[in-house]
């Protein structure tokens, strides 16, 4: 599920400087957001978990990361913690961290 840079370029009016800046911010913010989401889920703080998942969802939308966006959207509506939610989080974390690793390598971020 590679990032779709053309989608990002369209949102940013093909400003390459802004595209680079977005990718840098994304690569540094998402791991932090994932950690926060994990913590809020662990604490059963559904309100903050929802806000954090919402933020991840919005950022994924700019990069055309549709599967990750849908997973984050599911976690945004979280109201209980169980096996399903933990699996969902792990999948989201795996997808996003491997995307970030690939982005860092191929886009030289």
């Amino acid at each position: 599920m590679p990032v779709k840079l053309e989608i990002l370029r369209n949102y940013l009016n093909h400003d390459e400087k802004m595209v680079q800046k977005f990718l840098q911010l994304f690569c540094s913010a998402i791991p932090q957001d994932l950690n926060k989401l994990k913590q809020y889920m662990h604490e059963s703080d559904f309100k903050l978990a929802s806000v954090t998942a919402h933020s991840i969802k919005s950022q994924c939308a700019y990069l055309g990361l549709d599967l990750a966006r849908l997973m984050a959207e599911k976690l945004e509506n979280i109201s209980q913690i169980g096996h399903e939610q933990n699996i969902l989080f792990e999948s989201l974390e795996n997808i996003l961290l491997s995307e970030i690793a690939e982005m860092k390598m191929t886009l030289n971020i």
Partner: peptide, 11 residues
Amino acid sequence: DPTLSEITREY
């Protein structure tokens, strides 16, 4: 959201 808000501000 620090990423989107920062990009929006810069733009």
